[in-house]
Design a binder for these strands. Structure first.
Length: 486
RNA sequence: CGGGGAGUAGCUCAGUCCGGCAGAGCACUGGCUUUGGGAGCCAGGGGCCGCGGGUUCAAAUCCCGCCUCCCCGACCA
């Protein structure tokens, strides 16, 4: 059961609100090791539901799961110059094991390219071996300066896809396909709208040709990079000598990709839907889509409502709904309401003697957009299938609301730098501007406004009339989405 | 890693300045009464006072070192 009566409100202190939700909804807790967290059962269940959905989508697009080692010899990480430069500052290195100093230090993987490609070079000989479409569910370690539960932890859980292709076009197609899979997952399962697009060179994955990303907008109007997909070109193939014989009999390098999403998504989920009462979960990712709270006065009623509650539970499970009966005694219904609201359960069913008498239940929704009733009496007959539809509706409403919130926090066509600075400072959100394409200009704006170019947006997100000029006044080479970000 | 704040029961914190029996509320256990929006009474359990060293007759309290968390920067999924 949650402790404390009230959360700090989002408007008062968003960071405090976030930390309190993580603790009070029992999603995660701190560990004795810096920057590492314990993911508690309720939080882990959300991650498991995410994994289940994503894993199914990966398999549907032809990928197979495999597992590669946690440790990689330091010499392997050093092979790809840009890659090692990018990751060296944040790696943890094992120098001693088994009571002695190791001959060669082992790096705890910050990502697995450097262990996967040397191995795949042995697997790949012919164009007939391609494409190789792999995914791995794993933990990785990146020694970050500053950590926050789920959003940035020293050790985190993720999946990393790694694929090898015969040519650039296929690799690019795969990179884009998986970005699309992520977007579909974020919208359909997390109810979190994202802007997709290309990262600038400075934000690109270390060792990649191109990095694409999904960017969500959190309730404090800061952006969250929620997933990335990288077109790695021949870079890793050259570094790890991954070649195959093509149909012409030539030995050529493979074109590779990698793509990943992490437990950071749980943080994105919290900050996309949560409110001052606590977590708000979309039904598809809620450990319990519905909680039944029985209400009784005496023993006879206790038996009556528990019996009715369990029958409703069976009916709902048959309709494919994850449901829990909160039969805790000595706790009054009001306390249970607050408890489950804080944990974000999408729908609560209250079943008391009056409901049993009327052969109905009182359904109370967690997320209540304008114009919808928070409480609805529903007849027992056909309840399961009706609630399935009802929950599916809530899932859609959450996406609609999140999309409306993002659009309200999006400004387009900004050319004037002073106006840009004011927007970033006063309201945040996504600001679409032109960009001259110069890294120096990108860096200046970053230093002066603490905002970054999130993506060069994909076509469907671009403005009708994009700015002709960059914030620096130079002619724009293309539109970009800027924001302060996590 | 730099600046600031903090660490005492599961949680939030008081006690630290000025050394002298380890505290409160909530949570937890048992009993009784309760139960349609955060229940009441009674009786209990629970502490390496972040860790290590030092000063002292005596340390949660003073001194030194370290660890962890939070906020602000630089780095990042």
């Amino acid at each position: 059961m949650s402790n404390g009566k009230r959360l700090t409100s989002q408007s008062e202190d968003f960071s405090a609100w976030y930390n309190e939700i993580v603790q009070q909804a029992e999603l995660a807790s701190h560990s004795p090791v810096r920057g590492c967290m314990v993911i508690r059962p309720y939080g882990y269940r959300i991650w498991e539901l995410m994994q289940g959905a994503l894993d199914g989508m990966f398999k549907a697009t032809g990928h197979q799961n495999a597992y590669f080692p946690l440790f990689l010899p330091k010499s392997l990480l050093d092979r790809e110059a840009e890659h090692v430069e990018g990751f060296a500052p944040e790696t943890a290195i094992v120098t001693h094991a088994g009571g002695t100093k190791l001959e060669e230090p082992l790096v705890v993987r910050p990502t697995s390219e450097a262990i996967i490609w040397p191995i795949l070079s042995d697997w790949i000989h012919s164009y007939r071996d391609l494409p190789v479409l792999l995914n791995q569910w794993a933990n990785v370690v990146r020694w970050e300066m500053r950590t926050r539960p789920f959003l940035r932890t020293t050790e985190f859980l993720w999946q990393e896809g790694h694929t090898a292709h015969a040519n650039e076009a296929e690799a690019e197609e795969e990179t884009r396909r998986m970005l699309g899979v992520y977007r579909t997952f974020m919208e359909d399962w997390m109810a979190m709208p994202v802007v997709t697009g290309l990262k600038t060179d400075t934000e690109r994955f270390a060792g990649a040709l191109r990095t694409y990303a999904c960017e969500g907008l959190m309730k404090d109007n800061k952006a969250l990079q929620a997933g990335t997909s990288h077109s790695l070109g021949e870079n890793f193939a050259r570094a790890f000598d991954v070649r195959f014989q093509n149909e012409e009999g030539e030995h050529v390098y493979v074109w590779s990709t990698s793509w990943g999403v992490s437990t950071r998504l749980v943080g994105g989920l919290i900050m996309t839907h949560g409110d001052d009462e606590g977590l708000v979960l979309p039904p598809k990712l809620a450990p319990y889509e519905t909680v039944i709270v029985p209400i009784w006065r005496d023993e006879e009623q206790h038996r009556l409502v528990l019996d009715a509650s369990n029958r409703v539970k069976v009916d709902m499970e048959a309709a494919g709904i994850r449901v829990h009966v909160d039969d805790r005694e000595g706790m009054n219904p009001g306390s249970k309401y607050y408890d489950w609201e804080r944990r974000g359960v999408p729908l609560r069913l209250e079943i008391g003697p009056r409901d049993v008498q009327a052969e109905s239940v009182m359904a109370v929704r967690r997320f209540t957009p304008e114009g919808s009733d928070r409480k609805t009496a529903m007849p027992l007959a056909g309840l399961g299938s009706r609630l399935r539809t009802f929950l599916d509706g809530i899932q859609e409403e959450l996406l609609t609301a999140a999309l409306a919130r993002r659009e309200a926090a999006t400004v387009r066509g900004i050319e004037d730098y002073a106006e840009f600075q004011r927007l970033i400072e006063e309201q945040g959100g996504f600001v679409y501007t032109g960009w001259c394409g110069e890294a120096d200009c990108e860096q200046n704006v970053k230093e002066e406004t603490k905002s970054t170019i999130r993506v060069i947006p994909d076509e469907e997100f671009r403005s009708d009339g994009a700015p002709a000029r960059c914030l620096c006044g130079a002619p724009s080479k293309g539109e970009v989405v800027r924001a302060r970000a996590y």
